[in-house]
């Protein structure tokens, strides 16, 4: 018998499942890829076969035209791969279609979370705790200072500011996949039923969400409207457009940004943000540590963010852990 867990190997370009010769979230093209979710640092084009949830495949198709080789797996469904490896896709609560992947081989269980959060999100089903032997967790916000406030509080800040300046608009920078749609859905939940205006780059992804049953209310394109039409309204754009020439067409925008990094004042100042909204699709410190406790794996592998602090926490709590050095992952504008 092979050594325990020798079938799964962290390599610089992704997690290699040796007997099936396939990779989880590889950062370079491979023959067979298991993809957790549609964000660019996890989902790349050019693989021979891509195994993912139908929603993630739709997102990838929109971004990279990857219809060929697409193999859909629904939440809760298991796919058998060569070499006797089973892969089950389980909700991760991160963005539409996001999944943890449970890998089983020779009686050993490994969960790869991809990115995840534990807060409710109207645009995707919640994270499910899955018992396993090795838990491979992200650590984007892996520092104890990161505590994301309840999202309703942040929505209140946004709507209060909007109401205080009826002749201006609030321009919200939000990551085009996931964050933007969640902010819009949460605005609706907070009782804001005015039309919401979109930067052109957000439109297709919002439509895709709606096609998958996420109601976003009335959306309009900034390009179809005059400056005056936008007064007193919320405008959503990608973070890169916040300080761009594009924003000159808006009526004295109040610059907001929806991101977990906004918890740190200087990060907000660096981006010229006047109204920081601490909203993240990643687990905060409390969620990361609680999840490690609840999953209670024999060993935790930490990737993708501030591994050092989470590693230290595991050490202080007598939990086995190691940091994986994966390349190609970046801090999402999140």
């Amino acid at each position: 018998m092979a050594a325990p867990f020798s079938w799964i190997r962290p390599e610089p370009h992704g997690i290699h499942i040796v007997p099936a010769d396939c990779w989880v979230d590889p950062s370079k093209p491979v023959d067979r890829a298991l993809v957790t979710h549609g964000h660019a640092d996890h989902a790349r084009g050019g693989h021979g076969q891509t195994v993912a949830t139908p929603e993630t495949l739709a997102i990838m198709d929109l971004r990279y035209n990857t219809r060929e080789g697409a193999t859909p797996v629904a939440y809760g469904e298991t796919i058998r791969m060569p070499g006797g490896v089973d892969a089950t896709y389980i909700p991760a609560g991160h963005v539409l279609g996001s999944a943890q992947i449970l890998l089983e081989h020779a009686g050993e269980k490994v969960v790869v979370t991809g990115d995840y959060k534990r807060r409710p999100d109207p645009t995707c089903p919640p994270f499910e705790v899955t018992p396993c032997d090795i838990f491979i967790t992200e650590a984007t916000f892996g520092l104890p200072l990161f505590t994301h406030p309840p999202i309703a509080e942040e929505m209140r800040k946004l709507l209060d500011r909007l109401a205080a300046h009826p002749d201006r608009c609030v321009l919200v920078g939000a990551y085009a996949l996931g964050k933007a749609q969640r902010v819009i859905a949460e605005l609706r939940a907070a009782g804001h039923h005015q039309p919401i205006y979109l930067h052109g780059a957000m439109e297709k992804m919002c439509r895709l969400y709606e096609e998958h049953g996420v109601a976003l209310g009335e959306l309009r394109l900034v390009a179809d409207h005059t400056k005056d039409d936008l007064r007193g309204h919320v405008v959503v754009c990608p973070p890169s457009a916040l300080n761009d020439r594009w924003s000159r067409r808006l009526p004295e925008p109040i610059t907001a940004m929806a991101s977990g990094w906004m918890r740190v004042r200087q990060r907000a100042r660096q981006r010229n943000v006047e109204l920081p909204l601490v909203i993240s699709d990643h687990a905060d410190w409390g969620e990361l540590t609680r999840t490690i406790e609840e999953v209670d794996a024999q060993e935790n592998w930490i990737t993708h963010g501030r591994e050092e602090a989470l590693l230290r926490w595991c050490q202080l709590h007598q939990r086995r852990a190691r940091a994986l050095a994966l390349v190609g992952y970046e801090d999402e504008d999140d």
């Binding site: 520092l143 104890p144 200072l145 501030r306 050092e308 602090a309 230290r312 926490w313």
Partner: peptide, 8 residues
């Protein structure tokens, strides 16, 4: 923990 403080 002093290490967590310093990293933060």
């Amino acid at each position: 923990d002093p290490v967590l403080w310093t990293l933060s």
